[in-house]
Computed example of a mutant assay.
Amino acid sequence: MAKRRPVGNLLGLAVLTVLVQRPMHPYEMASVLRARGKEQDMRIKWGSLYTVVRNLEKHGLIAAVESNRQGARPERTVYRVTDAGLAEAADWTRELLSVPVSEPSSFEAGLSVLGGLGPDEVVTLLRHRLAALERRVEADRDALERERRELPRLFLVEDEYALAMREAEAAWVRGLLAELAGGTFPDLDGWRAYHETGRMPGHVAEAAERGRATG
């Protein structure tokens, strides 16, 4: 189970890890994280950066080392990561790598209510999704090949994982489409009849009322 952390926003972990490189002020942190494309790896709300930095300092995970001002710009405080911050970042990384967490996607949400649309429309929509996924997979493969010529694999494993997940999703959607288009999807006739007549087959209605077991 994921533990409760003094700063639970993943942006906090990003800040801790970027400060391992060198002390920085918040604006520089944001610039470096953006340059690394960190928002593609984590759900980051950039507007909360200064709040996250203050909370990290409050809990002793980072510390101010100097403040400076350039011309009429606001004063900027430079921070370094503390030993406690290094330990927190390492522990947090261990948790992220070792503890599976259920993170439902918007696609899962759509699949959970796809019965509200007719099967023919669902086929059309899934074909659009599959085409978009295949374009993205091709683009990601090309980008990864270019990156492999310039960067050590250590800095590319998250991109490899993201590509593998998109490939797996595309394969699953392709399989579902084959069932729907080929007529082998269970209760397909009843699903279609419901949208034609407005009457849901009895066993389907019972299942909808009963819901599914969760564990």
Rank of each mutant, 00 (worst) to 15 (best):
R149A: 13
D140T: 01
W46F: 08
A164S: 11
G183C: 05
T124Q: 12
I44N: 03
L86I: 12
R69C: 07
W191G: 06
D189K: 12
A35K: 13
V15L: 02
A72T: 04
A213F: 15
V78Y: 08
G60I: 05
R80I: 00
F155L: 15
E134T: 11
I62P: 05
E167N: 05
G60L: 12
Q40C: 09
E95C: 03
A213Q: 15
F107C: 04
A162Q: 12
P74C: 09
R141P: 04
L114G: 00
S48P: 02
R127W: 04
F107L: 15
P6N: 03
K3N: 08
Y161R: 14
H128W: 09
S48T: 15
R73E: 08
G110M: 10
K58I: 06
P26E: 01
L151V: 02
E206N: 09
L49C: 06
R76F: 11
G116E: 08
W191V: 04
L16M: 06
V99F: 06
D189A: 11
V7I: 07
E158Q: 15
H59T: 11
P152A: 08
G182R: 09
E75M: 10
L188I: 00
E160D: 11
M24H: 05
P26H: 03
V122E: 09
D159M: 13
V173N: 02
L97W: 10
Q21E: 13
R73C: 01
A170T: 00
G115V: 03
D159Y: 11
G202C: 04
Y27G: 13
R149L: 14
L180I: 04
R127Q: 08
M24R: 13
Y50T: 14
Y194E: 01
F185H: 10
P74Q: 10
P6V: 05
E147A: 12
R166V: 06
E147M: 12
R69Q: 13
V113R: 12
L56K: 09
A205S: 05
M24G: 04
N9R: 15
Y27L: 15
F185S: 03
T77H: 08
Y161V: 13
V122A: 01
V81N: 04
V32F: 03
L176A: 00
H203C: 08
G175L: 10
R149Q: 14
S31F: 15
E108G: 01
G175Q: 11
R43M: 15
L97G: 06
R135D: 14
I62D: 00
T51L: 12
Q70K: 14
A139F: 00
L97N: 04
E196T: 02
T184Q: 02
P186S: 08
W172L: 00
L151N: 07
W92I: 01
S31Q: 15
G116L: 14
V52W: 05
Q70C: 10
A171G: 00
S106A: 13
S67F: 10
G215A: 00
P74L: 06
A14F: 07
R4A: 14
E138H: 14
V18C: 09
R136F: 07
A2K: 13
T124Y: 14
R73T: 03
T197L: 07
T124A: 04
A89S: 06
T51E: 14
A178V: 04
L33V: 03
G37Q: 11
R212W: 12
E103K: 11
S106W: 11
H195P: 07
V18R: 09
V20S: 13
A162W: 05
P119H: 01
E169R: 15
E121D: 09
T77W: 13
G37M: 10
S112F: 06
A178F: 00
M29H: 06
V113C: 01
